[in-house]
């Protein structure tokens, strides 16, 4: 595997977007960055700018207003990109599925690569998800050789 391809696995940069979560998953995503979990060990940096990001972490349910934002952010990311839906809300809408202003899970708007269950998802689970996503990416890259 060439250095460039290997780099793609070794340096996933995160973009975190809160789509309407209760904050539980957001703070767990943030907690991943902090000393105890330190997701930077995997070369992961939270960049906060879709143009630099490789992995989009979405927490929470989608409503009509943030669906547009989510789609925009997804479109602005360079390819290849991964989407991780975090938490019950991100995966399916969770407890809010039937709320009036909720469309459902993230996959209603953009394709999701990895689903992280839990309410809220544990930081470990989020790390698992990134690893799983990178595994998927690796498969794609090796396939495209």
């Amino acid at each position: 595997m060439s250095f460039l391809k290997k780099s793609q696995i070794k340096s996933p940069w995160l973009l975190h977007f809160d789509c309407g979560s209760c904050n539980g998953c957001d703070i767990e995503t943030l907690a991943c960055l902090t000393p105890v979990y330190d997701i930077e060990r995997f070369g992961i940096v939270n960049v906060g700018n879709p143009r630099h990001a490789d992995v989009l972490i979405v927490t929470g349910t989608v409503n009509p207003r943030n669906a547009v934002i989510l789609k925009n952010l997804y479109d602005q990311m360079p390819t290849p990109k991964l989407v991780i839906a975090v938490g019950a809300c991100g995966c399916t809408g969770g407890v809010f599925r039937e709320a009036p202003n909720v469309l459902g899970g993230v996959d209603k708007i953009i394709p999701v690569d990895v689903y992280v269950p839990g309410c809220p998802a544990k930081p470990e689970a989020i790390m698992d998800a990134v690893v799983a996503g990178l595994g998927k990416l690796k498969g794609i890259l090796e396939g495209s050789k």
């Binding site: 689903y115 269950p117 839990g118 998802a121 544990k122 998800a129 799983a132 998927k136």
Partner: peptide, 10 residues
């Protein structure tokens, strides 16, 4: 333990 992550809805 928490439910493992997956790549599709379960």
């Amino acid at each position: 333990t928490y439910r493992p992550v997956g790549t599709g809805r379960v």
